[in-house]
Design a protein around this nucleic acid. Structure first.
Lengths: 199, 199
DNA sequence: CATTTACGATACGGAACCGTTTCGTATCGT
DNA sequence: ACGATACGAAACGGTTCCGTATCGTAAATG
């Protein structure tokens, strides 16, 4: 995908790294502005990137492949909990929901949903982004159960939904415009924690 | 059901009520199948409804107006709590999330999100559907605070997010395919309730 | 029966887009 | 300098869609 394979010395003009980056950037920008994944146009991407359409088709075989690559760049590493206390770790993780490395991710995600609902491929892509983060939280909860900080009979998957859901609908779906997002992670964690804490 | 306005006796052939219903039905069906609100086509609607395009344009001035009317039919009345216990009422309300009168609503909602994010008009439409249900839950929580069943210092809006979020991401976003939706409302309510209950 | 309007079907002009190709130019290795 | 390749821009044929117009037919009123 990226132009320079190591082995063959390129005989002619090498492909511009800037162009490839500009194309990816333009794609993410357009998605973040609310264009549906299927409503986005190659011509709009090319125009936004200041690039000819041929330059895009020289690198990707079609729109689907380009979108796949663009979305893949959003998969940042999930935040790493400090391991000090379960409460602190959960606040960190809950606060990070919708705060991926790229701030556009939160705006792109809802645009991806309609496709993910029908296309198993896009659904798998979404899950592949979500699952690593879920794994981190799952481990924090298991740790809490082992250490006795959390109830032994805890339903971990439901608990994760209880921690994740409120932030997700607020940050991604903009469910209630009046809520304060900055203090919300702490409130949610404390609310749930008091319920699930062993005594 | 009476398509005919009473006042003027219609001189010619009256408009078919069946056609209008078929058009609305076809629109909702297509949306429920995953078509984005902006990717849907009048020709597809006409074909699905078994109707000529002219029949649509005789009733609605354009696509936007038709979609508005179609979406409006999804606004069923929110469920009414029994008022017996806060826990029972909350389980009822949480269980009803994504279970509107029309089962297609849950599939249509995510398709509406990309538009709602950019267009204030669509956002207002979404909120007008959500807000009445939120009001019911808010009243149940306030009642619980007054009766002493819930803590006096409860943050009602955050609590609603904690109750609504988990079910919403599960039913609408299909967040975790392994979770059991039928037992989830009770688990979520009990989880949150134990945290917010006054002792 | 005559008139009036709606019906489904079909065709139209105009616009947007896709994916490809062709320009003339710019930039590399040799 | 030279050939090779990538570049941005533009045009192409083909498809899809919108909103309108035009068919012949169907269903109401008078």
């Amino acid at each position: 995908m990226t132009g320079t394979t190591d082995a063959p010395r390129s005989p002619g003009r090498p492909r511009s790294t800037r162009a490839a980056e500009a194309i990816i950037e333009a794609t993410l920008d357009l998605l973040a502005e609310g264009s549906t994944i299927e409503a986005i146009s190659m011509e709009a991407i090319a125009a936004r990137a200041g690039v000819g359409k041929a330059t895009i088709y020289r690198r990707w075989p079609g729109k689907d492949a380009l979108l796949r690559d663009a979305l893949r760049t959003l998969k940042g590493a999930p935040p790493q909990p400090t391991g000090h206390s379960v409460r602190e770790d959960l606040i960190l993780l809950v606060g990070a929901i919708g705060h991926t490395i790229d701030p556009r991710a939160a705006k792109i995600m809802p645009c991806l949903l309609p496709e993910a609902q029908r296309s198993p491929e896009h659904y798998a892509l979404c899950q592949s982004i979500i699952e690593p983060r879920r794994a981190v939280m799952r481990e924090v909860l298991r740790r809490g159960v082992r250490s006795g900080e959390l109830r032994a009979d805890l339903d971990i998957e439901v608990t994760m939904a209880m921690l994740t859901g409120p932030m997700l609908i607020q940050r991604v779906l903009n469910w209630n415009p009046d809520l304060d997002e900055t203090t919300m992670p702490e409130k949610v964690v404390d609310g749930v924690l008091t319920g699930i804490r062993a005594h």
